[in-house]
Design a protein around this nucleic acid. Sequence first.
DNA 1: ATGAAAGCGCTAACAC
DNA 2: GTGTTAGCGCTTTCAT
Lengths: 358, 358
Amino acid sequence: MADKDALSMHDDALAGRRASAGPHVGSPMGSGAGVTLTDVAREAGVGESTASRVLRSHGSFSSKTRASVLEAAARLGYVPNRIAGTLASTGSKLVGIIVPSLANIVFPDLLRGANSVLGKAGFQSVIGVTDYDLDGEEGLISSLLSWRPTGLLVAGLEHTPRADAMLRGAGIRIVEMLDTDGVGIDMVVGFSNREAGRVSARHLLGRGYRRIGYVGHDLALDLRAAKRFEGFRAVLAEAGLQVAAEAIGAAPSSIEAGRDGLARLLAQCPDLDAVYFSNDDMAIGGYFLCLARGIGIPGQLALFGHNGLDVARCAPQPLSTIRTPRVEVGETSARLVSSDGPPAVITLDFELIEGATT
Amino acid sequence: MADKDALSMHDDALAGRRASAGPHVGSPMGSGAGVTLTDVAREAGVGESTASRVLRSHGSFSSKTRASVLEAAARLGYVPNRIAGTLASTGSKLVGIIVPSLANIVFPDLLRGANSVLGKAGFQSVIGVTDYDLDGEEGLISSLLSWRPTGLLVAGLEHTPRADAMLRGAGIRIVEMLDTDGVGIDMVVGFSNREAGRVSARHLLGRGYRRIGYVGHDLALDLRAAKRFEGFRAVLAEAGLQVAAEAIGAAPSSIEAGRDGLARLLAQCPDLDAVYFSNDDMAIGGYFLCLARGIGIPGQLALFGHNGLDVARCAPQPLSTIRTPRVEVGETSARLVSSDGPPAVITLDFELIEGATT
DNA sequence: ATGAAAGCGCTAACAC
DNA sequence: GTGTTAGCGCTTTCAT
């Protein structure tokens, strides 16, 4: 890692850019920062608590005081200090959100749903990315908890024992997302990945496919993908079948991994009639391979994914897949942070999309 | 707001699920929460300040005290309260990140780069999503500032006057990302979108294309896409040309919008030889349309995008596009929050990818 | 090496 | 309707 911090002054070419920018004040006294409620109160000629009430529109005050406080605050460029506010009161208006990755659009979708609901309710999202590492998750949990969030949303049901203990002991609403195949801590919002795998298998069998392969990514890390595959195999087994061949990569899912995985799978077992992919990214990669090789879909080879991404829906042949309610899971989870009531499991439906690839 | 802590026991339906989960303790006394430094100090038989030093490995203390404090903290399940810590000291170890959207993978990429660097440096990311609304951005800025972050990363150079004033007055490091075409406030990390548009145009012209169309999305909101288009047209103009036809949608970019946009464009002007898209999502949509209609690429129609997404790189015919250093911008920006020194502009290179679609 | 004490900026009783 | 006061839990001089 080179010294990226060795930033020298901008060159002449930039001088112009900044002509209108005025002098940069680097000290923490720029303007608003440093102005406290006390300053505002003094400026407005009222007591601190009155100023506080006005600024939070809480309690009573004359419209006259209201005006002067607001005016003083504006004139001084007052920016409330929520750190102090939180310490003095309760509930930080901060919500922690932990996801395994940001590289797969599934999690930004989840975040988007959650953040949009949270924002409207006056919460700020503090995010943590585990990189599919449960120990990393443990660290993030403890770190996020130290900000005394109102609630914590975390993807998945599996945690280290210590993480589990911290979540249970936190005394705040915990929402585990995207998976209902297991035991939750407090609230659980998602769907059964195992069932999604089952549905996928039934669909393929229903269409008459029998020599079915699997292309997956690092199942040791992506537990939900593993559960889907498990459900998938279970249904095949019930039909007296098994997966004819599988190509499981060690990397996270990606289009490239799907393409390469299918290539390996076909090299190893050319006479498959269908392939189940660990998710849509992988499946799109497989689809691209077929396109490139002129493999007929679904005649020569059927493809089935999971998630229902836009790219899969818009392809020349829409991918057969399962649309998962990612945004909705985020939204629902966000709503739950300020709910009371006992622990519960909320199952959101996924939807089988019969595309053109099966 | 109801009492969130009033979590009563789970109902019967859940009893099974929770058999191994033990009783759920909902009060803020679950374990760690509620335990203060004072408790730890007392338990360890030392003063508060000593306990504080040990817990932060700062200052001096005997290894004996160290052991007992650590042990007490562990026994009590102590979770430090960073809210209090921040108030007492300075610098919140919080960094605000504001992006216009999470629906386009570009921004999760940016977040990913930033968050990964920030995490390693002990910072937490607090995110804000503007939905491409500058007024929304203004609100988010003020909201994020109230958490007294160490720095604020924000995508784009354009802000409302009030937002601009808040950023300037915040007294913290501000990093504006992904755009260098304009005047920055403090640090600017990105590249010139205008230049990217120019380079794109030169590439197309260099390949001999002359009847060039444009398919774009809501340029009024996506200012960087507008700047690219501006640079693109400028180069065409220098060559005595102009965009032969354009289809500009009112929605955010998406694969679907690109597909539909190209369809409209071709309906309106069938004899184009190349199309410039506002970004890769749009271009992939166009690519899919060509595939579906059997339009030969690049013979019949050439396609050019922007961003260098995975999906574009892995397509049967890799898309000709410009790879933008999104993750790197995030990483670099994150490094800057804890840097000192004068304002500067850091330009990260984008890269022309000569794919198979031109 | 360790403890006592004074806040950080705000909210929340509680008086007036 | 408004001001006074006592903390929230921690860090930080400053003594010792």
